[in-house]
């Protein structure tokens, strides 16, 4: 009996040892992978803080000898200045967020809480845009925007982005309204709440997580979009950040300044990463609600 007990103890400690070794291996693999994933971003940001000469050194140096913002100063000398391009990108993104949130919230409420003729058909029509890639309608959109004099305009680009964002936004908001218990509305109705008051005073607070999710996606997709901006924004002063950076890279402004390019890349990707880190929960909810459920 004693020996039996002993052997179990030995076996269980062996299992524990094996398990601990397994964990260590997993951690090491996880950390190495994390370093690989972060390396390109880290390297770009680090290089943007080197001196311009060092940023363009052949072969590249590893750690910077000095830390300086000179590359950012040089970046500011392209076109109309970096502030203008940040303004363009941020302005379009904010207009996109505003338009998408307002339209999606109204439509989500309508589809979730009201029955009216052809409501299912209209909902399907809005969702159809999820299945048809926007690349296939860019040519007529370009003509349409030119015809109404909204080509080369920031609100015009925002209108196009709102169109791309609406299917996801409406779907997300309808699902969000769907899970709000109806008892809350019944109570508010008894208090004499009108339909509009119900939405603005009662429901908006309850569906806030959905609104934040829709807003995060609208912001990131607008800020990052490339092809539509490339086609619609042909005047340098109206470029968004990705289009400006592509011009820097393609030698539009003379020899490629690698340091300034890294400064530009850092300016472009930093807001996305910060936003994601702070609102990660909402972003992931969008993936689960928008993709897995659908």
């Amino acid at each position: 009996m004693n020996t039996a007990l002993k052997s179990t103890t030995i076996r269980s400690s062996a299992v524990q040892l094996r398990r601990r070794a397994g964990w260590t291996v997993l951690y090491v693999v996880g950390v190495v992978l994390a370093a690989l994933f972060l390396f390109p971003i880290f390297w770009s940001t680090l290089t943007s803080l080197k001196s311009p000469a060092e940023a363009s050194a052949v072969p590249p140096t590893y750690l910077p000898s000095v830390l300086t913002f000179e590359n950012y100063v040089k970046l500011n000398q392209y076109g109309a200045g970096i502030a203008r391009y940040i303004f363009n990108s941020a302005g379009v993104a904010l207009l996109t967020v505003l338009g998408t949130v307002v339209l999606s919230t109204l439509a989500g409420y309508g589809f979730s809480r009201f029955r009216f003729p052809a409501s299912n058909l209209l909902f399907l029509m809005l969702l159809a845009a999820l299945m048809i890639p926007f690349q296939s309608i860019l040519t007529p959109l370009f003509l349409l925007m030119s015809a109404v004099k909204l080509q080369n305009s920031l609100p015009g680009l925002a209108l196009v982005y709102i169109t791309f964002q609406l299917p996801f936004g409406v779907f997300m908001m309808r699902n969000t309204f769907d899970v709000v218990p109806r008892e809350i509305e019944e109570a508010a109705l008894l208090d004499g709440c009108s339909t509009w008051q119900m939405l603005t005073r009662v429901m908006l607070v309850l569906v806030r997580p959905g609104i934040i999710t829709v807003a995060v996606y609208a912001f990131l997709n607008s800020w990052n979009e490339f092809l539509a901006a490339l086609i619609l924004m042909t005047q340098e002063v109206n470029f968004t950040l990705p289009i400006l950076l592509t011009s820097v890279r393609s030698g539009y402004y003379g020899a490629i300044d690698w340091g300034a390019l890294q400064a530009g890349i850092t300016v472009t990707i930093l807001p996305c990463i910060v936003l994601f880190l702070f609102l990660q929960r909402y972003y992931m909810q969008g993936l689960m609600g928008g993709a897995v459920k659908g």
């Binding site: 109204l106 029509m125 809005l126 007529p140 349409l144 209108l159 196009v160 339909t195």
Partner: peptide
């Protein structure tokens, strides 16, 4: 309530018709 519901979804529907359905049909026409 029927009218209210329809009015709530109307802006998104009009937007989609003007900026998505119409361009899609126009792609075919072009």
């Amino acid at each position: 309530r029927m009218v209210a519901g329809f009015l709530f979804v109307l802006p998104a529907v009009l937007f989609t018709v003007a900026m998505f359905i119409f361009p899609l049909l126009m792609t075919g026409w072009m």
